[in-house]
Design a protein around this nucleic acid. Sequence first.
RNA 1: GCAGUUGUGGCGGAAUUGGCAUACGCGCAUGAUUCAGGUUCAUGUCCGGGUUCCCGGGUAGGGGUUCAAGUCCCCUCAACUGCACCA
Length: 804
Amino acid sequence: MSVLYNPKVIEKKWQKVWEDEKAFTVGTDTSKPKYYALVEFPYPSGQGLHVGHPRPYTALDIVARKRRMQGYNVLYPMGWDAFGLPTENYAIKNHIHPKIVTENNIKRFKEQLQSLGYSFDWSREINTTDPNYYRWTQWIFLKLFEKGLAYKAEMPINWCTSCKVGLANEEVVGGVCERCGSEVVRVVRKQWMLKITEYAEKLITDLDQVDYIDRVKISQKNWIGKSEGAEVDFTLAGKEDTLRVYTTRPDTLFGATYMVISPEHPFVDKYKDEIKNYEELIEYRNNAAKKSDFERTELAKDKTGVCIKGLTAVNPVNGKEIPIWISDYVLMTYGTGAIMAVPAHDERDWDFAKKFDLPIIEVVAGGRVDEAAFTNTETGILVNSEFLNGLEVADAKKKITAWLTEKGIGTKKTNYKLRDWVFSRQRYWGEPIPLVHCEKCGQVALPESELPLLLPEVESYMPTDNGESPLAAMTDWVNTTCPKCGGPAVRETDTMPQWAGSSWYFLRYIDPMNDLAFAGKEALDYWMPVDWYNGGMEHTTLHLLYSRFWHKVLYDLGYVNTPEPYQKRTSHGMILGENGEKMSKSRGNVINPDDVVSEFGADTLRTYEMFIGAFDLSAAWSMEGVSGCRRFLERVWKLQDLLTDEEGFSKELETKLHQTIKKVSLDFESLKFNTAIAAMMSFVNECYRLERITRGEYKTLLLLLNPVASHVTEELWETLSFGGRVYQASWPLWDEAKTVEATVEIVIQINGKIKAALVIEPEETEENVIKKAHEIPAISTILDGKTIVKQIYVKGRILNIVAK
RNA sequence: GCAGUUGUGGCGGAAUUGGCAUACGCGCAUGAUUCAGGUUCAUGUCCGGGUUCCCGGGUAGGGGUUCAAGUCCCCUCAACUGCACCA
C-alpha cells in the first residue's frame, strides 16, 4: 500500500527543490527558442491575495511549464505594481509610511504566491516603487516630454468640498465623497496630459498585427471610437465669431433647428454682456459641475437645458436664424463642445426638442419623425434639403461635405472618442514627475544623470487643503535651480498615475538589473515581443491601451524593436462567491486562498481553479467542488496500488491514453483547462475500472498533469523512480493512429428521430452501413410500407433515413 | 442609454464545420467496505406517462431555415460587466 498523500509536506519539499535547483531561472539562451509568458502583476493590497489571482497565474503557469517541457526557454516573471491610492490612504489613516505598508504587503503577497508553487523566475522580481525601477519610468516620461507628447491643460478634477482634496473617480460614490459623504464638485486644475490621441489611428490599425481575443479588439476599437464626419461653422447672428460644431451627419444640416453648446463653452463668458440671462446660465453651469460626465450624458434621464437669450446662430446652408441652448449632455471634452441639433434624426435632440417645444424638421424620409427620431442611414432619402433632395444618406454626406469645403464653411473631419491621458495626480505615493518650472526657461526636463528623482522621504504625505500635491508643502525639495540656466526654479509637485509603472514593466523583466538602460538591446532582441499576455477584461481599455501607446512611442524613437508589445492577449473571467455574487468583505463571501491551501493543498487549489469552468467566463466558488478536485488527486496518488508489471498495453487503455494526450495538449493551448482536466479524470476512472495501469501509462499521466498539479506529480515521479525531474522531462506526443477506436457506434435516425444504434468499423462504406441499418428489425418494421425519400450518411456519426 | 458577455439537470459546467444534448465534477439514492467516518469502492440519477422495455417532451421564451438546430437567422425576455449620451 502506498503512503498517504500529504500535500503539506510534499508541496514545501518541492518548492524548496525548485528554488535550490534554480529550476525556473532563465537567461538569454540562443540555442533554444524563447517563450515569454506574462500575467498582469498584482497591486499588493492590504487584504492579501484573493482567490481571483491564482486563476490567470495558474493558467499561464500551465502554459509556461508545458512550453519548457516542449523545449522552450521560458520567461515567466512576476512583480509588484505597488504605487497607488489604497496604500496611501491606509498609510494616512494608520500613520505608517506608505513605503513600509508596501514592503509589508509585498512580503505577504510573495509568501502567498510562493505557497502556490508557480514557476516564476523570482530572480527577475520587480517593484514599481523601487527607485531603480521608477528611474526608468521617469526616463520614459522625459522621452514623451521631449517628443512633445506631454503638455499641460486645464482639466476638471473631483473636489471634495469638506476634505478639501482631489478625489479619484473611484472615491466618488453617488456624487458624494466616499469617506465623509460630502458633496463633490468638479474644479478645474492644470494637469499634465499625454497625447495618446496622436496614436489613435495606429492603435486601431495595428490591432490587425496581433492575436488578441475578439472581445479585446472590439472593446479597444469602440473605446478609441473613430468616426467620420464634418466640422461646420455657424455664424453668430450679427457677430464676426463663428460657432464650430462637429457632426457625423452633415447630410442633415437642413434639419438643424437649434444649437446646443456645453455649459463650459467659452462663448458663455465671452458674450456675457449681451446675454440677458447670464445669471441663469451660470447657475446651470454650477449644477452641471457637480455631475460626472457619465451622469451628464445618461440618455435615460430627463433632458435639461437653458436657452441663451440674446445670442443666436445662422444656419450656413439656408441663412435661417436659430436659437442656441446650453445643456450638460454636450461635453467640452468631445468634438468642439458644441453641436447642431437635428431633432428629426437624433434621439437625444428629439427628446430635447420635445421637452422644450422646439421645431422638428424632417430631412430624411423613411420614418415618422412626429413619433420618434429616424436615425436609419441605410434606407432614408433626403427631403426638404434643396440640392440634396432625392439623394441617399451616404451620397448626401459626400455632396454636402464637398459643398461646405468649397464655400469654406466646413471640412471633412475624423474624430475619435479617445481622449488624452490625464497624467498627473495630486498625491504623494507615485513617481515624481522629473521637471522643474523656471521663470526664464519654462518647463525644463531634469538631465538624465539626475534620475531617479527620488520621492522625498518625509513624515507629511497628507493631502494639502488647497488641492496641491503633498509634495508642494516640502519647500526644501520644491525649491531648486534650473538645470538649463542655473537660476531659481521650482519642481513639479504632482506625481504620476499608477498606470505609469505598469505601462512598460514587461520590458524591465527582460533585463531587470540593467543600470545603463531600461533593458539592453541584446535582451530585447531575444525576448520581445511578449508571446502570451493574459489579464482581466477590466484592463482592456486603460492599461492595455496605455502600454501599447508607450511601446509605440519607444518604437518610433528606436528604443524597442517591435511595434506591438504583446503578440497574444487573452482574458480570464472573475471568480464569484458561493452565492454567485462578486466577492467582497461587505457581502461576507470572501474565500481566502491560504485557507484552501492549508486545508486541501496548493495542487488542489490550482486544479480546482482550472476545473471551475470556462476560463473566460465568470464562475462561482464551491467548496464541494474543491473537495472533488482533492479526491481526484488522491485517486491519481492511489493509482500506485494498481501498478502492473504486465508487459504491453491494454489496447483499450492505449487508445484512451493517446486520446487523452491529444485532448490535454490541444486544450491547454486554447485555455480549455476544464475539459483537459475532465479528460485526465476520465482516464483515471478507466484505470480504476480496468484495475490496472502500467508504468508507461502512469508516467505519461504524470507528465500531462504536471503543469496543473506540479507538486504531487514531482513526488510521484520520484517515488516511482522515473529519473530526473518532471520539469526537465519532455512533453508526451500522441500517435494519431492510436487515437482511433477499433469500432464506432453510429446512430440510425428515421425522419430525424433516433431509432437504433449500429456498431461498425470506422472505414465502413456508406453502402454497407445503409444495408446493415435496413437489416435491423426495429428499423425495417418502421420502414415497412413507407417510401424512402432520401438517406443521409455522415461518416462515423449518423445515418438519417427520410421516409414517407 | 451605449458597448461587451451570458442564459443548458438539484448545482458548477461539456458538446470542431449543424449530426446520439447533459461528458467531467458536485449533490442525492442504493449496495458493499471500514472499529469509526465529512473514508473508500460499485451502481443509479434531465422531465412526464405506462414500468423487461417502450412512448412523448426537453438547452431563457416565441418564430424561421434544414433530412437534422444548444449550435445558423429574426423577434422578445432576463442577468452580469464596463462606460465617457461622443453628436
